[in-house]
Amino acid sequence: MRLTDNGSRPLSLKDRAEAHYLNATLAEIQRHASILSVNFWRYNYEATTVKGYPVDSGAVITAQLGALHVNNDIFKNADKFYPDRFIEDPKLLNQVIPFGIGKRSCVGENLARTTMFLVFGNLLLRYDIRPHGLFPSTKNQVPYTAAKLPDKNVELEFVKL
């Protein structure tokens, strides 16, 4: 609220650098959602070894990005929704990679991050958003798949501030 003069103006991109808790919350949402939990499939052209495991030529391989987001070695109490982890350790922001990494990462990442910041930030400035009934489950409905299924049993209530 301080950034927008108590909500008298919309949140803008110039506020992004100062909106630490909003940025941390968005990172935690992306870590929990991890909607596309695997990267693109790759074809292994020659036999190799990965961490001591043999991988034959002709094998189809991929990185399971979603597994990184729930790794307790990286994110303590990974099953808990806790945005403060990114305030306490800003380096953790680099460990959340919902858009992939490297030359094959999503080309729309900057647009998506910008849109999430503006849409969620401005919604939160104007509404108290509450679950109507139970909180949504963060449990993975179908683990070890290419994409997560959302919990469709939740209804949200938007109460104007």
Rank of each mutant, 00 (worst) to 15 (best):
Y127H: 13
L68N: 14
T145M: 07
R85N: 02
H132C: 12
Y82V: 11
V60P: 00
N153W: 01
T115S: 10
G66N: 10
G52N: 08
T145N: 06
D79F: 06
T48E: 09
Y45F: 13
V38R: 09
V38E: 04
S57M: 03
A112S: 14
L92E: 01
D5H: 03
I129P: 09
R126Q: 15
R130N: 12
F158L: 15
T114Q: 14
R126D: 13
E155F: 07
V119H: 00
R2Y: 02
D79G: 11
N72M: 06
Q30I: 06
R2K: 05
L156N: 00
V96N: 07
T138D: 08
V50G: 02
F81M: 06
F117C: 05
L161E: 08
F120A: 04
T62W: 01
I35D: 04
K91I: 00
A27N: 11
V70T: 14
L123D: 03
K91Y: 02
K51T: 07
L26D: 04
F135W: 14
T145K: 11
I35M: 11
P54A: 04
P83G: 12
H32T: 10
D84T: 12
F86S: 01
A78D: 08
L11G: 00
P90M: 05
P98Q: 08
A27S: 12
K152A: 06
S37Y: 02
E18Y: 08
R104G: 05
F120W: 02
F81C: 08
F40L: 14
D89R: 02
A67L: 13
A27I: 01
G133H: 09
M1P: 02
V70S: 13
P98R: 10
R126N: 15
D151K: 06
I101R: 08
G7R: 04
P143L: 12
V50S: 02
R42P: 04
K76R: 11
K139H: 09
N153F: 04
V96R: 05
G133Q: 10
V60L: 13
R16Y: 09
K160D: 12
K76Y: 05
R85E: 01
Y144N: 13
A47W: 00
A67E: 11
V38T: 11
L111M: 15
V154L: 02
D84H: 14
R113Q: 15
N77W: 04
T114R: 10
G100I: 09
H69Y: 03
A59H: 03
N153V: 00
L125P: 04
N71P: 12
P143W: 11
T145H: 08
Q141L: 14
P83W: 14
T145C: 06
I74H: 03
G108Q: 10
K51V: 09
P136V: 08
S57V: 00
T25Y: 12
P54T: 01
A147R: 09
V142G: 02
K148H: 15
N23Y: 03
R104S: 08
V154D: 03
D79T: 13
A67F: 05
N6S: 02
L68T: 11
G121S: 02
F99M: 06
T4K: 01
A78P: 10
L134Q: 15
Q95N: 07
A78S: 15
D5V: 01
T48G: 03
L36P: 03
E88D: 10
R16W: 07
I35R: 05
P136K: 04
F40G: 09
G100T: 10
L36G: 10
V142M: 11
K139P: 01
R9L: 01
N122W: 07
